[in-house]
Amino acid sequence: MRMRDPPGTFLPRNASARLRFSPGAEGKMAAPMSEGPPALEPGAAPYGNFPNYSRFHPPEGRVSLLPGGLLQSLFPAVARPLLGLDVGCNSGELSVALYRHLLGLQESKGCLDQPVAGKDLNLLCCDIDPVLIERAQQCSPFPASISFANLDIMDSSAREPILRSYLGRFGRSTFDIGFCMSVTMWIHLNHGDSGLMEFLSFLSSLCKYLLIEPQPWKCYRAAARRLRKLGRNDFDHFRSLAINGDMVERITQILMKDCAMELVCCFGSTSWDRSLLLFKSNGSNHEGGESSEQEQ
């Protein structure tokens, strides 16, 4: 993922809304046309856009923690297809793994199989890096159900038309479930305490459920060390962050006290010491929308 476009590396902000349509996938969102930035030095990914992220944090480490039939248990009475938003999808490996796991699809069977979990799911996956999005789209085995968009989620002028357009295709105003996997640190480092608060508030207003994997504080220090080792400037906000320490606790407090969400479950921790937390929105906009849609 992730946030602001570093000079000379990413596309201008106004380019993030210029999406092209994929051949054979009507309404499919894709990356903007671009030759892409040059490869970054190892460790030089100040927005979390590591080019080979899934090699050192494989998707199986997360999806294995999630119970089977999760969507059925969360949405037992919803007959329509569910909508999901994956923020900071990188090159899409985890997005595809989540899709397979939540629908009970076996990796060996491919994209023509019917979901066996009793639910259907459409995913919008976004990332700030156009090269990673291009790779994700080219490699996706589910082009009809998983859409990829190059987007800086913190740029409100870019995100509003893209999200509104996607939701409008389904006659919806919010997503059923959001995924925020190892993204919060990059928002926090590049946008400060207020940026993190804004980000969490935005997600909680847009998603009925939120599956989130916060990075622990030791990862903040490691990210700062990587930049210094490469002779680059430190993160603008790192030394002034007042929200620090136990980031699982701090983010849980923000979501519950400031964003009207409740903690549903902690599914445990990955082998690299990151907790997987599921929150539910108490907002009336989600409750009312779900109720009316179930009646249709």
Score class of each variant (00 low, 15 high):
M247H: 04
C259F: 02
S64D: 13
R226I: 03
G118E: 04
S292V: 08
D127F: 00
F142A: 01
I177M: 13
G168V: 00
E213F: 01
M1D: 02
A77K: 01
R225H: 13
S64I: 05
S204E: 02
G110I: 06
I254D: 09
F179Q: 02
P23E: 07
D236E: 14
A44D: 15
L121A: 02
L167Y: 08
L98M: 05
T270G: 04
L206E: 05
F56K: 05
L255E: 02
G68C: 11
F279I: 03
C219K: 10
R228P: 01
D236N: 05
R221Y: 12
S108M: 03
D120Q: 14
S73Q: 14
F175C: 02
F56A: 00
A242C: 03
H286M: 03
F142M: 10
G171E: 01
L189F: 12
S182W: 06
P81D: 01
D129E: 10
P67Y: 08
L277E: 02
K109L: 08
S165P: 09
R18F: 03
I177A: 11
N122F: 14
A25P: 06
P46R: 00
D152L: 00
L227R: 15
G268L: 00
L189Y: 08
H57C: 13
L98N: 09
L167W: 04
G48C: 03
V248A: 00
S194D: 15
L94Y: 09
A144D: 15
S240T: 13
